[in-house]
């Protein structure tokens, strides 16, 4: 039905659409900026290796763990929460995988156990946060310590080595890409599939709508009959399963159980989600953005390593990029409001 207001409101819709495109473009811009930065700064022969197709496939493989983690983290952050226990959960589940394989369990059983453990820890986080109404930051900070401690106990505080015969099947998910052919690690396909499914869930399912509603205004969501506690609990549990999956990938990549692995990886994951356009206040964020964010983090790490910068330079540069990304987001939002 046409009314005389139509042109103005079409304008409003168009402006918002444009803004959404810009928001989506933001993470890509940051990635492009990082790539260009390396292109300019790298000496010729290093650049040739860095910008090869093989290295790109390698970077993709290195992205897998952080990318899966940031799919779960995106859900949590959109709902207005945070999870600091990811690194410990990744370590716990990867060591659990190693212990199980070493004791002769089948691949299928091992995968099931790893995912269930991740989900269980997420469920525990979710129950404490939503039923006992404690702050996610504190609850998951506590869980960070608990899970890391359990990991060390499980591994007897040393690396869990596998029999040689088990190595190829364990390592398959995160196998090195074929330098000349088309083969990439199956883990990459898992990430892409999971990202597509979760993007659909966040944008097209009732569950997804409720996650956004709770992060944006929890009081209103409850007033509209949304079961906010159940939704939050489900978010943490489902994310826990994803963190278990990330642990599986880490195990596959290391082909051993290392109780000190993935230390501080939660910060990379949170950075990826924030670079991807999510706000730590909740209510905004996207899976696609977080995936680009995860890729950006991997490119930064890989590039810094190949230039042969010492570790401390890496840390400083990554820290700077995170602050720049959030600054860009703030600026974008204040522009959008005018």
């Amino acid at each position: 039905m046409k009314t005389e207001h139509q042109p103005i409101l079409d304008e409003q819709t168009r402006r918002v659409n444009l803004q959404q495109v810009i928001n989506l473009l933001g993470p890509f811009l940051i990635l492009a900026f990082v790539v260009m930065f390396f292109a300019i700064i790298m000496p010729g022969e290093v650049a040739d290796t860095f910008f090869s197709a093989y290295n790109f496939k390698l970077i993709l493989t290195q992205t897998v763990v952080v990318a899966i983690g940031s799919i779960g983290m995106t859900m949590i952050i959109v709902s207005g929460g945070i999870d600091l226990s990811v690194g410990s959960v990744v370590a716990l589940t990867s060591v659990l995988g190693a212990v199980l394989i070493k004791s002769g369990s089948s691949m299928g059983m091992m995968i099931l156990a790893v995912l269930a453990t991740g989900g269980l820890i997420g469920l525990l986080n979710g129950v404490i946060i939503s039923v006992f109404r404690m702050t996610p930051f504190i609850v998951t900070l506590g869980m960070l310590g608990i899970a890391r401690g359990l990991t060390k106990r499980l591994a007897d505080n040393q690396t869990v080595n596998l029999p040689d015969i088990a190595l190829p099947s364990v390592g398959l998910l995160m196998a090195d890409p074929d330098p000349n052919g088309y083969f990439v690690a199956p883990g990459i396909a898992v990430v892409i599939d999971l990202a597509i499914i979760m993007a659909l869930v966040l944008n097209h399912s009732v569950f997804g709508r409720y996650i956004f509603a709770i992060g944006s205004n929890e009081a209103t969501a409850r007033l509209c009959g949304v079961r906010t506690r159940l939704v939050k609990l489900s978010v943490y549990t489902l994310s826990g399963v994803f963190f278990g999956l990330a642990g599986l990938m880490q195990f596959s990549r290391l082909r051993q159980g290392d109780p000190s692995t993935a230390l501080g990886i939660e910060l990379d994951i949170i950075a990826a989600v924030v670079i991807g356009g999510a706000s730590l206040n909740g209510g905004t964020g996207s899976i696609l953005g977080s995936m680009i964010g995860a890729l950006t983090m991997a490119v930064l790490r890989s590039g810094s390593t190949q230039i042969d910068w010492p570790n401390y330079v890496q840390e400083i540069i990554i820290g700077t990029v995170i602050i720049l990304a959030v600054g860009l987001d703030k600026w974008r939002q204040s522009r959008g409001r005018q």
């Binding site: 709508r209 956004f212 509603a213 944006s216 209103t220």
Partner: peptide
């Protein structure tokens, strides 16, 4: 006070 969910 309006009780809408601002981002939706």
């Amino acid at each position: 006070e309006l009780s809408l969910v601002p981002h939706l």
